[in-house]
Nucleic acid binder design. Structure first.
Lengths: 245, 245
DNA sequence: GCGATATGTTACCCGTGGGTAATAAAAAGT
DNA sequence: ACTTTTTATTACCCACGGGTAACATATCGC
């Protein structure tokens, strides 16, 4: 079997092979490679030469797809943010009490942390981004935190969650989940599913008004990329933010 | 009142003032300044010139106290690790069931995360250290994690904590606490004490076998620097690790 | 007071790595 | 088949910042 299909980050530029794949595929291939390297070694220790080398191209070729290193970082980050956004959108679309929504969020968020792009949300340093992009990133993080808080507040209101400081409870839960992004590794003993299941009960058992009503088999559909990205992709190659940098 | 006494990181090199303070005081002043800058801007964005400037000296002067930037980083990290070590030592010295020890640890650890040196344990990237120091750092982190796990295991054994996966429970709790180091800020709405109190109940209420026996007023003495550092300080200026770098 | 040691300073080196021409070679359009 | 556009390459620039050498000046033991 061709390793290009088994290796998640295999580059479409295999030497001496047809290079006629679509631009977007290549762009994403860059991001997949970059996010791996960034997580592995840390943004500052990864050189663009290194990224390019893994893709069987050279550094300047990257500039056909991105305006600079920091934009690659931001796009990786963005991919992760979209994962979370789609998760939240789906939960909001569905119904349920506060505690049910919270449990869904905890479960799905835990799984996102086990994905490279997902982990990048919490492991990348927003200070490495341009001012403009940093603001976007911070706003997104704030929205995510607000969602945790909203579900808890809703749960207290509808009686499914017992009285507590929603702000601190959200911090505690989100912190615990974010930390997964720092210790999880694919080849570890725990699968993303196991981690998500365990964290779902562990992080909410103290909050539930009732001792926990049987197993929460209300699984969210496996995280998938949405189409929201499509639109923005077309804007590539245009000017970068004004007051940034 | 002289700002030197109110500002926590005021340098002892005030211009045109007597510079005859002890070497160790200056060394620590460097660390206090460095840790602040590192947390504020991130290790890679802080230049040694900048550190020196804040201390009213010049870059090469720093090399009288440290062998290089990474050693400064490690020593900052080390200060934090000692805070945790002393906390654990104190708890181990005292008695109590598993849940009591765990609560003490959670409370004290939360407070450590609100201290610059404490936050540095979780916010600095071990990959910025030399191989030798990175090993030391990783080992220390492992010991801390093992302590959380040990208290939980002990609690399950003595019946004060209900059955659960000790490994994942420890990850959940430690993650939540570590995350404090990422969001806490001195000028925020929450005081370290409030955070510690809230986290102590929030993170252990789900684990306790009994619904929580009144307020846990078993406060650990405020975190203080131990004397263990004294010995090592004397070794300064000697050769650095062999296979490192 | 006087040499030895500790602690600074100024001036410099140089490796690193992001970013940019200038240019070649495919792909695509017509 | 030809031009045009896209995509990649080779060769280079240069700012930045960690680290060092050579030198100046306190401080201290005696």
């Amino acid at each position: 079997m061709d390793s290009r299909f088994t290796n998640p980050a295999a580059p479409p530029w295999l030497p001496f092979e047809s290079r006629r794949r679509a631009r977007d595929e290549k762009r994403e291939a860059v991001l997949r490679t970059a996010v791996q390297l960034f997580l592995e070694q840390g943004y500052h220790r990864v050189t663009l030469n290194e990224v390019a080398e893994r893709l069987n191209i050279t550094k300047p070729a990257l500039y056909n797809y991105f305006r600079g290193k920091d934009e690659i970082l931001f796009e990786c980050w963005s991919m992760g943010a979209e994962l979370v956004d789609s998760v939240i959108a789906e939960i909001d679309a569905g119904g349920g009490s506060g505690i049910v929504k919270l449990r869904k969020l905890v479960h799905a968020y835990a799984e996102v942390m086990a994905i490279d792009f997902g982990a990048s949300i919490v492991r990348f340093d927003v200070r490495d981004l341009t001012n403009r992009n940093a603001r976007i990133a911070r706003a997104a993080k704030k929205r995510i935190d607000a969602t945790f808080r909203a579900y808890i507040t809703a749960g207290i209101a509808d009686g499914s969650i017992k009285r507590c400081d929603a702000k601190l409870a959200a911090f505690a839960i989100a912190g615990s989940l974010n930390w997964i992004g720092h210790w999880y590794q694919r080849d570890g003993a725990l699968s993303p599913g196991e981690i998500a299941d365990e964290f779902t009960v562990r992080l909410t058992e103290g909050l539930a008004a009732k001792p926990a009503q049987g197993h929460t088999t209300t699984k969210t559909a496996p995280v998938a990329r949405t189409a929201t990205r499509e639109a923005r992709r077309k804007a590539t190659g245009k000017k970068r933010g004004g007051a940034s940098r």
